[in-house]
Design a protein around this nucleic acid. Structure first.
Lengths: 163, 163
DNA sequence: CCTACCGATCGGTAGG
DNA sequence: CCTACCGATCGGTAGG
């Protein structure tokens, strides 16, 4: 909070004329990000019927969020653990719901014969973990364009790396 | 440190008869894990010549380390940021060296015609990020066997999810 | 918006 | 191994 105050050019106690608490700041960031992902999934599911198409759209959205809204996504990915009740439970329920919808999406793709019969939970974990790993990218950025990064990662997660 | 002391059944100051500092504990965990990965890559490269075979072995090792040595790998993955100099620089050099060797491995596979011509840095990032993401698994463990988890994730990262 | 200050917590030391 | 305690840091409040 003292760092934040310094960045804003005020003393730390002055922050509390604008915000209620540090916790409150954390809550608004976490739920803002969680909501962005939920809303995107809604629209993706409305504008496409093919589960592979929806899956690809979702992966691309995750990648773009990591690249364009890095700071907030980072907080939502790491600091949610310090959310206070009832926000913590709420956040976890939302996140589990989101993951479950992705699992169902993959199950649908499997039943349609479009996706391999891998365990759908493992598939969702692999995908979410990979896109989230873009946070390490930020640290030692190679000079690779966002477009190559996005396209190659999507290709890898959908079709693999073996020729 | 106070939690650690409690777990050991002593008072916090007593810890310092056994260790030098909290930092020292962090160092030994981080370098122990970094070394395990380096040693494994060495042996994998000696016992196989095919780059796809080596890559698969390495991915499997990462997954097993995440499942079997979770606590220490977690610390090495997250807390290395708090390493003090010169350990911090040292650790980063080791890690970059390791990642670079994986990049070279993939480049070799591409030149051999075994792997797709994706950007090799993106491929390494995708793989490392995905296996590392197993830390979320620990949190909300589904009842899936380690073997299915390992096999399906390897399949996904090598051959993709699309049929 | 500020100054002054609080209670809790943390890694660690002194001294026995 | 312990008791006693330190200086730094943190989120936050009182009072103006």
């Amino acid at each position: 909070m003292r760092e934040l105050a310094e960045a804003l050019g005020v003393e730390a106690p002055s922050l509390y004329n604008h915000i209620g608490s540090k916790s409150e700041l954390l809550q608004s960031i976490c739920f803002k990000i969680a909501n962005a992902f939920l809303v995107y999934l809604d629209t993706a599911e409305k504008t496409a019927t093919n589960s592979v198409t929806i899956l690809e759209k979702v992966i691309r959205f995750h990648i773009r969020m990591m690249l364009n809204e890095f700071d907030e996504v980072y907080v939502a990915n790491h600091e949610w653990k310090h959310l206070k009740e009832p926000y913590l439970s709420n956040f976890l329920i939302q996140r589990r719901g989101y993951e479950k919808r992705l699992v169902v999406l993959i199950e649908t793709g499997i039943r349609a014969g479009a996706l391999k019969k891998n365990n759908p939970y493992v598939a969702v974990l692999t995908i979410l973990a990979a896109v989230r790993g873009l946070e390490f990218w930020q640290q030692h950025k190679k000079n690779i364009s966002s477009q190559v990064l996005e396209d190659d990662m999507v290709e890898h997660l959908l079709h693999g790396i073996i020729k």
